[in-house]
Design a protein around this nucleic acid. Sequence first.
DNA 1: GGAAGTACCGACCTTTGGGTAAGCTGCTCA
DNA 2: TGAGCAGCTTACCCAAAGGTCGGTACTTCC
Lengths: 130, 130
Amino acid sequence: MTATDPPWDPYARECPSRDLLNRIGDKWTVLVLGELADQRPHRFASIRDRIEGISEKMLTQTLRHLEEDGLISRQVYPEVPPRVEYQLTSLGVTLRGPLAVLREWSVSHATDVLAAREEYARTGLRRCPS
Amino acid sequence: MTATDPPWDPYARECPSRDLLNRIGDKWTVLVLGELADQRPHRFASIRDRIEGISEKMLTQTLRHLEEDGLISRQVYPEVPPRVEYQLTSLGVTLRGPLAVLREWSVSHATDVLAAREEYARTGLRRCPS
DNA sequence: GGAAGTACCGACCTTTGGGTAAGCTGCTCA
DNA sequence: TGAGCAGCTTACCCAAAGGTCGGTACTTCC
């Protein structure tokens, strides 16, 4: 935002922006943020149930990272049984669009890619001479 | 593209679109495709040199996957020393925009995220009572 | 004749990702 | 009395990711 920001470059080794890029492109992160995209509070169990195959451990870990990075907020209600609500922060909202586009791309081009893989399996093997 | 495509859903376990999402969000894939974004042919060594810290093994593997998925083409010139050129396919071009947006986000928000991490390290630790 | 360049491939080994399972809290309901 | 709830945490373990190193083929340059 300021003019004094270092020239972040994901192509540079150990640049924080590369690290960040890895995190936001993460397997579970993309799905979790997508689920929180409506900016309404979500509870642990509802996110877990929505994302098929995620373990509680990975969900916890992913949520912690997102909170640490300031992308989501975590609100604990001191009730019994405990209630915790997660929701996008304003910083998280800025990431909503980019990730939505990515998910949409993967949905709308899955067929093309599957076709390409078949084609590759059939013809691409001339790489190995008979 | 066609009306008969299965209803791909990355939130479903073992859906090809989830698999695809993981691949395109991959650590090296994002950078490699970014480097090829100008649609001009690129050689192995030039890509390797541009992406600091990538090993030749990972570059080879990433390029193979991209070729397999139909996102890049691989042109071999039977010369000595060998010359191989990689370039985006038309399918690959459709992914250029989404990934560019993602890279730009990580560059322009790295500062914010670093600040959030510091804040979290300082205040977020009331999670552990003294 | 030895070194260097190109784009790999394969073996080996370490690091990380990620799964399972158990435990914990403090109240409530049977 | 004790089971069950929500949202974890911790320990343990295996498999996959990914780095390092060595080799290849053929030629050109020194």
